[in-house]
Amino acid sequence: MAIIFKAPDALCDVPMHYCPGCTHGIAHRLVAEAIDELEIEGKTIGISPVGCAYNNYLYFNCDMIQAAHGRAPAVATGVKRSLPESIVFTYQGDGDLAAIGTAEIVHAAARSENITVIFINNTIYGMTSGQMAPTTLLGQVTTTTPYGRDASYSGFPIKVCEMLATLEGPAYIERVSLHDIKNIKKAKAAVKKAFKVQIAGKGFSLVEILSTCPTNWGLNPVESMKRVENEMIPHYPLGVFVGADLEV
């Protein structure tokens, strides 16, 4: 019997702990498919964040390193500078990358570290139970903005792709979404391109993936997908910010 669809080899055959309707599972699959298709699992080293994906070192079949909160780009720098022939990726959420790890991501991008960053933006802290993230939208209710995020008090959401695109370092930056099949396919292409940019030695690549958090948003999975489309994309427009013409 022919196998026409299977789990990627780069994913371990273990149960994941993510909540129903959370898009981490899809994002993991896209990363693993890219690793499989590019045949790089044996030389790939992934860096796990602090946040809901803290233990995805158990899910990816390549060598994995668990990093402190926000420090994954610095850890990745240490690995990549030690093993220039390896493929190094970080997998980070919005609290990890855009709050506590702002310095590390900005400088890794500025140095054009030849690494790939998978950035999960779901506008909230998931693991610690729904606090305001740097990407939380204005008016959004979280456990630390119970009356909605007020710009005059808590400031404005950070647009990571746009901010990093002002630097000369990055080779490729794209924002994608997982809210429907068409966009998942686009996201897959972006993730694969990011790895190809690294393989070609072009420098820093980052894919921001607009994602869901049904549990902490208080929405069901279908409503969550709609929120990504109707509320997040208007504030976080999809598209390529750096490297649109880059052929790899």
Partner: peptide, 26 residues
């Protein structure tokens, strides 16, 4: 060898964490 001036002491020690994880003397 690799010499890198990090953006902070915090980043520097985490680069050490990375290189040490990769099995290098750091």
């Amino acid at each position: 060898g690799v010499f890198l001036q990090a953006e902070s002491e915090v980043a520097a020690i985490n680069m050490v964490y990375g290189a040490a994880s990769a099995g290098k003397r750091v």
